[in-house]
Each structure stands twice: as structure tokens, then as C-alpha cells.
């Protein structure tokens, strides 16, 4: 049973990988990668890595691929001619490179003289690879990598927002007064929704903003009293 599942999942993973690089339209490449990831999760399950398999399907096939699909739809998934423009010379070179790489990797792994490589691995207890085991390891032995990974995710999220946003500002004092509830905490004309959608791109030369909304309101009230 395990053999049958291995061959089904392994051939599915390899076919998905070939589909990624052989299909002309980037959109179909993304779909091929999704099928590849699901097959790979099956291989992970055969290797008793339940939690990694679940994380693979949820994080990759769920979240990351949705991001890919959005970006492909945004950029425009136009068909591109396969292969380098210079002709088929580079493709031949890359095929030779790929074959050499495969040979090298096979020699490096299969010829490594590891004693257990021709077996199914050491016998493992029943809960091997379960979320419980992984979670307790992540919070005890591997706490530092766990925290560093979370910081890396935060940095990547901030970086993506900075890279992908539009730059620009609000144009006049009224708009600034309308949008700025928190302009003590940030410089004028930045960080507003209007800036994000690119409503205005630059300040007019004469625009000077001095009043916060609270000040403007207080001034208006003072005027009314007078």
C-alpha cells in the first residue's frame, strides 16, 4: 500500500513540477504547482510528517498560491514564448546542466554510504510528527529559530507593503483635516487611505498645514463664541 501511494504521489509531484516549467501561461504554472504541492504533502504523510504536510497544504496551497494567482491576474498572465530568446543554445546548455545536477545529487545522496538509506528508517513511536511533538519542540529546543522566523515574517510583511504601495500625498489642507485623526503620530500627508489609493500625488507649492482637526474645531468654536 505504501509503495502504491509513493509511486502515485511521487509521479504526481514530478508531473506537477514539469508542468510548472513547461506550460506557457503563468496562470497554469501556478495551478500545476498547486497539484505538485498536494502530491508532495502526500509524500510528507508517508514519511510520518503529519504537521508539516498540513502546514504545507494550508500555507502553500492555500495562502501563497492565492497570492500568486492574484499577482498573475494583476500583472496579466500573458503567454510568453518558452525558452531564451537567443535561440535553443541556452536551452541545450540548461538541459545538460540539469542532467549533471541530477547525477550529482543522486551520487551525493544515494552514494553517501548512509546505512539506513536502504531501509524504511528507524522505528518511530506512534505520535511521531504530530502537532503535539512539533509544538513542544518548537517551544523548547527550537525556541530561538521559532522567534527568528516570526520576526522574519513580520519584516517580509512590512517589506511587501512598502514595495507594493503607491506613493503620493494629499493635496490641500481640507483633505488633510478630514483624514488626519492621528497626525500627531505621523508626518503630515502620509499613511492615509487617500494616499494609498493615489488620490493626490503631490502637495501644491503653497500649501501649509498647521491646524490639526482638534485645533480647527477649537478655533471655529472660539470664533462662534465671539
Amino acid at each position: 500500500m505504501a509503495e502504491v501511494l509513493f509511486f502515485v504521489a511521487g509521479s504526481g509531484a514530478i508531473a506537477g513540477a514539469i508542468g510548472v516549467i513547461a506550460v506557457r501561461n503563468p496562470f497554469y504554472s501556478v495551478l500545476a504547482l498547486v497539484s505538485h504541492l498536494v502530491s508532495l504533502a502526500l509524500l510528507f504523510l508517508l514519511l510520518r510528517a503529519e504537521f508539516v504536510a498540513a502546514a504545507q497544504v494550508i500555507v502553500y496551497a492555500g495562502a501563497v498560491m492565492v497570492l500568486y494567482v492574484f499577482v498573475v491576474a494583476y500583472v496579466g498572465g500573458q503567454d510568453e514564448p518558452l525558452g531564451p530568446r537567443a535561440g535553443s543554445g541556452l536551452r541545450v546548455v540548461s538541459a545538460i546542466f540539469g542532467a549533471a545536477l541530477f547525477l550529482e545529487l543522486s551520487v551525493a545522496t544515494l552514494g553517501s554510504g548512509l546505512q539506513l538509506i536502504d531501509s524504511g528508517g528507524r522505528p518511530v513511536p506512534a505520535g511521531f510528527g504530530s502537532p503535539e511533538e512539533i509544538g513542544s519542540l518548537l517551544l523548547t529546543k527550537f525556541l530561538l529559530p521559532f522567534e527568528v522566523a516570526s520576526f522574519l515574517l513580520l519584516i517580509a510583511a512590512v517589506g511587501a507593503v512598502v514595495l507594493a504601495r503607491r506613493r503620493g500625498g494629499l493635496s490641500n489642507a481640507e483633505e488633510q483635516a478630514r483624514y488626519s485623526a492621528m497626525d500627531i503620530l505621523r508626518p503630515a500627508y502620509t499613511g492615509t487611505m487617500a494616499e494609498a489609493v493615489g488620490e493626490r500625488h503631490s502637495l501644491p507649492p503653497g500649501a501649509v498645514v498647521t491646524k490639526t482637526p482638534a485645533e480647527a474645531k477649537a478655533a471655529a468654536e472660539a470664533e462662534a463664541e465671539v
Binding site: V20, L43, G98
Partner: peptide
């Protein structure tokens, strides 16, 4: 299944990916 088979599949997928990086032109 022997571990060696999994490693062979892994090597093949890595090779396919490397060849794709070399031949494709779209950064996506």
C-alpha cells in the same frame, strides 16, 4: 519504501526547478 527513493524524487524535483530557473523568462 526505502528512504533512497524519496531522495531520488527530491533530487529530480530540484533539478526540474533549477532547469526552470535557467530557461524561463518571466520572474513569476
Amino acid at each position: 519504501m526505502d528512504i533512497g527513493w524519496y531522495l531520488a524524487v527530491s533530487a529530480l524535483i530540484f533539478t526540474i526547478g533549477a532547469a526552470g530557473v535557467l530557461t524561463r523568462r518571466s520572474p513569476l
